[in-house]
Amino acid sequence: MKGWWWKVLAVVLLLIASIAALRVPLAPGILNVSKLSLSPGPAELVITGYSTRFDDATQVLIANGGQYLCASRTKAIDATHLNAYFEVPAGMRDDSSYVIADGMAFDTPLYTDSLGSGMADNGCAAPAPRTKAFLFPNLNRLDESIRNLFFHVPMWFAMIALMGISVYHSIRTLASNSLEQDRKAASAVHVGLVFCALGLVTGALWARSTWGDFWTSDVKLNGAAVTALIYLAYLVLRGSIADPYKRARLAGIYNIFAFVLLVLFLFVVPRLNAVDSLHPGNGGNSGFNDLDLDNRLRVVFYPAVLGWILLGAWMCELRDRAARAAEHLDR
């Protein structure tokens, strides 16, 4: 086990995290309610759910200003569609009514008119809270794409870790003038760029499904683009110098210089310009902390991050061994 336990750990973590990321179902939720507003009189609502199990006995009610109105009759069309019939009284307290089916609330309220001091007592009580199973949160617009959290975000963690490894080797290159350290720095950048590309692709797909476009002008996205450009420039610099010792020194200097400025650009400038960003965690947008109230995402996310970082380190080691072998063959 000595020396390769962390590779086993990487495989185990990635298997667990990836299987969980793809197999754990989303919590059921309500996708749509057929009406936008409520007026006194009979009302028929068609409720569309996501991975729900509606039947004729499903409890549907409307919450308004702390009071509840139960459906007079419900009829399931199928497991995800439900007809609910209400007798809406006049004089509700609040102009926003929330539809709750089977304990799940629809997040867009129905506009309500003919307000008054509240409904007469109707014997309709607050819904029982749902029993909790291990399910991922179901959020409008994110929907099933929430699973990308376990792939897109760890890519960037792994890339930053690899670039950090690369800078460590670059500092040692400058201190020792050793070509071996320089080769390790270059290997880490090569593998880091693979993760950068994967991060860009997974991010672009996620952006397409939630924001409607593959690329937007955004501090976070600019940061990603600049990162890719810096490390491609690093490879160009390496390619343009023939003398290996000179190449080691110049590439090391550029790597250290670029990494410090990159860290400033990724983590300091977005906070200065925090006013306009679509990306979670920037510009006052909610990040992970608000998405994940019951820590179910974290249980999968942290193993995924650690697993991808370890896999990156493993790939880096292999790449370095291949480069060393190629050097020996050239001699």
């Binding site: 810096i230 160009v236 610099l237 110098i241």
Partner: peptide, 23 residues
């Protein structure tokens, strides 16, 4: 030092100067 003039300088410099430029 790389002996590759303004072409290489543009490639190396643009991504690094970008934070400053935006600011």
């Amino acid at each position: 030092r790389a002996g590759n003039g303004i072409g290489l300088m543009a490639i190396l410099g643009f991504p690094i100067v970008l934070p400053m430029l935006l600011l």
